[in-house]
Design a protein around this nucleic acid. Structure first.
Lengths: 348, 348
DNA sequence: TGACATAATTGGAACGTTCCAATTAATTGC
DNA sequence: GCAATTAATTGGAACGTTCCAATTATGTCA
């Protein structure tokens, strides 16, 4: 059975050539005669040869391991699963293979995972960082010349490439849409204020709100945990104030769902009595009742672009940080009160 | 910057010992003196040493690579994403690292991916096979002594371990539940008849239907694509017959959603006019309207068990196929008409 | 024919680690 | 105080590959 594995020497012997020649055909060199090439290939098939990439990588100076690491903070969230699929697509067709790990927002786990990946000689890393990640955490990587692309969540001072969705434009579009529906008091609900994503989405809101001629009112900003429960909490606090808003753009879809819950608890129907817009366009957004109007970012496309960015850097050898922002688009469904109730046709 | 990487020899020199000693501390051998151990460790930290697992694996006879491969047919489906997370958990805490790839149901892709993993020297493989996978596809793996665990979809004649959900018991439980609600004509809708999963779920249905004293009626079995569209189609054909059923257990949740669509198209409300039960308990099942009564399988738990199974085999050295079936449970929500609607009845 | 270019092949050395047998240093027994 | 034991350490050799310089075979030109 598992007798000694068959090596390049075995097949050299079988084909009556030297191991060097075998190596040459392995890498498709034009130096080798057509006749010997087929002879060698036949022997490989015959003996069931499997290439030992580890040995090859060891010999080659440098780190051309054909492995790229992917680290996401929550694979359970379909947004990140899609992201990983996008990465896998392009990485795979470039002849690389993907090391994927999930950190569950644990920074310790993230450190372990990245260390392990380094030991395995990854030639690049795509990471959607766990919450408390600091820019310095990637210092050793870039010092070792390993390209890093940070995705989804931007990392303030890090000297690495990044790809994030256009948070600013997203919330701005949401505000413009709500204003066009006649809303004059629009809230911004949910999210932890000390994160980069929050800051970006908030300034998008703020800029748009003055752009359309509504004044900016501090009172209308109500932060909370970026979760369903957080949303319910935020809307409760919001509606308790003197001059409550009639619409809200939410930090993300989870918050938006919570806001809907909270509205119903006060006897108000989202979409009819109050307009709600989310952010992310998670799958549930289309099937929920009412279907959620939200800002859609294409996670799979984002994964693909992240991978392309990384591969470019790997091939270039030169590591030069590049920051790209992915376009987003407003998807109008029911929760903003604008549309026709026919969300279901989107599903096919 | 990226000057030659620091090796075990460099740190040996720095610590004033031999490379052998360094290797010893690397593997935590008790043979090395405490004093030298700290000296060496210090040097490692100082010089920023990173272990080269590839070189180590090369030296060690055998394939102890500390890499395990995970191949899923559709990572976009949250069921499989959860599965992967479960695998990652236990694999990770056992000091292994996960190579995850997505095949998108492409058998060619699957072959490529597995070949690539072999080249990288995986010490085990967990795979949820793409649709047309044949048992023979894993022959080379097991011949090479690489443990394989097939998950979710069983592979008829393969001599590998497997973990599948208890399909038989699942549909049986659904039938019993519907019968207890008074239904006398219960359909089985959707799914491709030529798959193992279909066969298991169907016999579960069939056995239960005679067990509760309803006769088995061929007419009540209507197959279709295992998708939302397929479900809509199946229910249309079903309701067109002479003596239509009043309830259906569906091949999976997607089919069940399609059945709901189809019912509404005929002016019937699922849960009130017709009972629907799904299978899988995808996330949308809880948020849909009406919330879907379904058979829940815990994909993350399944992933964990698959990983445990695999690790056991890796450690045992002996490869001995073992087949386990994971328990399922009926989750009663609204679509079967049993539960009282909470707050959403106005949509009807 | 000899000189020379070109095509194809080849033996060793190297990559960073672990293993083995062997060496040295420290400790014990009597 | 010397053999015997134990504790620490060590220098190669080896893993399977690729690279390099060197070699052999083949063809070309006056």
């Amino acid at each position: 059975m598992a007798g000694g594995r068959v090596t390049v020497i075995d097949i050299a012997k079988a084909a009556g050539v030297s191991k060097s020649t075998v190596s040459l055909v392995l890498q498709g060199s034009p130096l080798v005669n057509e006749g010997t090439r087929v002879k060698v290939s036949a022997a490989m098939r015959e003996l069931g040869y499997v290439y030992n990439r580890g040995a090859a990588t060891l010999r080659q100076t440098g780190a051309k391991s054909k492995i790229i690491g992917v680290v996401v903070n929550d694979l359970t969230n379909s947004f990140f699963a899609e992201l990983a699929v996008g990465v896998d697509m392009v990485v795979q067709s470039a002849g690389f293979v993907q090391f994927l790990s999930n950190t569950s927002e644990s920074i310790d786990r993230q450190r372990e995972v990245i260390a392990s990946m380094r030991e395995h000689g990854i030639s690049g890393l795509i990471v959607s960082p766990a919450r408390a990640t600091e820019a310095a955490d990637f210092k050793p990587l870039v010092a070792a010349g390993i390209p890093v692309v940070v995705a989804v969540r931007s990392l303030p001072g890090a000297k690495v490439s990044s790809i994030v969705s256009d948070n600013h434009e997203g919330t701005a579009a949401a505000v413009r849409h709500l204003a066009s529906l006649g809303h004059r008091r629009i809230s911004f609900l949910g999210g932890f204020p000390n994160t980069a994503v929050f800051a970006e989405r908030l300034t998008g809101y703020r800029d748009a709100v003055v752009e359309v001629g509504l004044g900016f009112d501090d009172e209308l900003i109500v932060s909370s945990a970026p979760s369903r429960a957080g949303g319910a909490d935020a809307i409760a606090r919001t509606m308790a104030m003197g001059n409550p808003p009639t619409a809200a753009v939410c930090f993300n879809d989870a918050v938006a769902f919570g806001v809907c819950d909270g509205l119903r608890a006060r006897g108000m129907e989202p979409g009819r009595d109050f307009a709600v817009v989310g952010f992310d366009d998670v799958i549930e957004a289309q099937t929920a009742v009412p279907a959620l109007t939200t800002i859609s970012v294409d996670p799979q496309g984002m994964g693909r672009r992240a991978a392309q960015l990384l591969l470019k850097q790997i091939n270039a050898g030169k590591v030069e940080a590049e920051n790209v922002t992915a376009a987003v688009r407003l998807v109008v469904r029911e929760s903003c009160g604008a549309a026709q109730r026919k969300s279901r046709e989107e599903l096919a």
